[in-house]
């Protein structure tokens, strides 16, 4: 088995174990509608996780992910619904801002954590300006897309597989993806190879913003309306998803398929604990325990890998 495959083994095992646990406790979940109810809210989380993964691939961290997805959700529920052209323009501008952030972080050599933390307040502020009170409504086509009932498997499964494949093709197979990962791994090498580091970083940020925009839109499609705080949890969820899926804080080592699986695992962990009827006071702790368990397993695998 290649090391990459081996890295994917732990998240897959965690997902299968949790899924088995959920089915065992709640047999009703093992059905078409059951799976959809269980996993449909994982779709926006998976998209946000891919976005975070792209940022982490260039050795940065985005602490504004939740705020940005909330902002996108607010734009989607208002402008994109009422005046689609203006809505698309705003979303495109937001992606451009992200690319600009990548440039600034690179040129000024700023820590990405500080810049994105600052930006999180900007995004939240804009979201509150757009939608001072919760409301708005999802564009009809988006709602239809997110509640579509395809044959064989529910939307949540199709969407997750599609996201994983597209992200895999972009990050692992395309030239840009290779450059992005190389940038996170060894900046100097990329510079010497004659590629513009600034352009690569900007592209990584723009691509991340694009996935985050999709996350916000998917969320509105599911929730039917928005709220300026709707996705604040996504910052930590997306980071946890990347790590769970085999990514690392040290740039360059990421796995798009793993990230999607990580997002699904986190969502399932929540349902699993709720079915177990664990008191809410302990739920965050229990979620943390699942994370630690998976990471410990991975460490063990890494050791085995190194010994061989």
């Amino acid at each position: 088995m290649t090391p990459d495959r081996l890295r994917l083994l732990v998240p897959v095992m965690a997902l299968v174990a949790l899924l088995a646990g959920v089915f065992w406790m709640q047999p009703r979940a093992a059905s078409y509608t059951g799976l959809n109810l269980l996993l449909n809210l994982a779709v926006p989380i998976a998209l946000a996780t891919i976005a975070q993964m792209l940022i982490m691939a260039v050795n940065d961290l985005d602490l504004s992910m939740g705020a940005f997805v909330s902002f996108v959700a607010c734009v989607t529920a208002t402008f994109l619904n009422d005046t689609p052209a203006l809505g698309l323009l705003i979303l495109a501008a937001a992606i451009a801002v992200y690319a600009g952030l990548g440039v600034i972080i690179h040129l000024r050599n700023l820590p990405s954590i500080v810049v994105t933390l600052g930006m999180s307040f900007v995004w939240t502020g804009l979201a509150v300006l757009i939608l001072p009170a919760p409301g708005g409504s999802s564009p009809e086509w988006l709602r239809t897309l997110m509640t579509v009932k395809p044959p064989l498997a529910p939307m949540a499964i199709f969407a997750s597989v599609l996201i994983a494949i597209v992200a895999h093709l972009i990050v692992m197979r395309s030239t840009l993806g290779v450059r992005i990962r190389a940038l996170g791994g060894n900046e100097r090498t990329v510079a010497r190879s004659g590629t513009s580091i600034i352009a690569t970083r900007a592209a990584a940020y723009a691509l991340a913003a694009f996935f985050a925009v999709l996350a916000g839109m998917a969320l509105v499609g599911l929730a039917t309306s928005a709220d300026a705080n709707i996705a604040l949890r996504y910052t930590l969820l997306s980071i946890a998803g990347v790590i769970l899926g085999g990514g690392e804080f040290i740039g360059g080592r990421v796995s798009p398929i793993g990230a999607v699986i990580g997002a699904l695992t986190l969502t399932l962990a929540g349902s699993f604990l709720s079915f177990l009827r664990i008191s809410p006071d302990w739920q965050i702790g229990a979620q943390g325990a699942i994370l630690i368990l998976v990471l410990a397993l991975r460490l063990l695998f890494n050791r085995l890998e190194a010994r061989r």
Partner: peptide, 9 residues
């Protein structure tokens, strides 16, 4: 938690 964001569920 929100008058609108739970509507889908």
């Amino acid at each position: 938690a929100s008058p609108t964001a739970l509507n889908g569920a």
